[in-house]
């Protein structure tokens, strides 16, 4: 139910994102999901990869500043209102979302949304009790 996310500090200048992508690519690491939050000065690149330990090792070696966080990935019907339904569950349960990002799966009619919660356990069980499908680590990595 918990999925490990790697967040990387990047200066907001040309080539930094490419440098991370190239580094992971050369290590044979596959990126399953990503989001980039940025300001005019710097950005935070958040990644879910197939081999987190190898990715961390490579990042450490190349002196990147990074941290790891557990996030929750849930499956959402890929139809209008799909996301709203899930967010309403969280709102009604009084759960704060730190940040979230989504990607749409090609093969099936579904979308996957990654959530970062302050209280991960509480939020995940709230979602499950409301009938929202929380993906396992294996499911996320096989996306």
């Amino acid at each position: 139910m918990r999925v490990q996310q790697i967040s990387i500090f990047l200066e907001n200048r040309a080539g930094r994102l490419a440098a991370v992508a190239r580094l992971l690519g050369d290590e044979g690491i596959n990126i399953r999901a990503l989001s980039l939050a940025d300001t005019s000065d710097f950005g935070i690149l958040r990644l879910i990869v197939d081999r987190p330990d190898a990715a961390q090792q490579a990042l450490r070696r190349e002196q990147f500043t990074y941290s790891t966080t557990d996030v929750v990935a849930v499956e959402i019907p890929d139809v209008p209102g799909g996301l709203a339904g899930v967010l309403e569950v969280l709102q009604d349960g009084g759960v704060n979302v730190e940040y979230m990002y989504a990607f749409v799966e090609k093969a099936n009619d579904r979308a996957v949304v990654v959530f970062r919660f302050e209280n991960l356990e509480g939020a995940a069980s709230l979602l499950e009790s409301a009938g929202v499908r929380v993906l396992t680590r294996a499911e996320v990595l096989s996306l």
């Binding site: 300001t39 500043t65 970062r116």
Partner: peptide
């Protein structure tokens, strides 16, 4: 590493 956070 200590200064960094995944939360903007």
């Amino acid at each position: 590493q200590e200064l960094f956070s995944d939360r903007m």
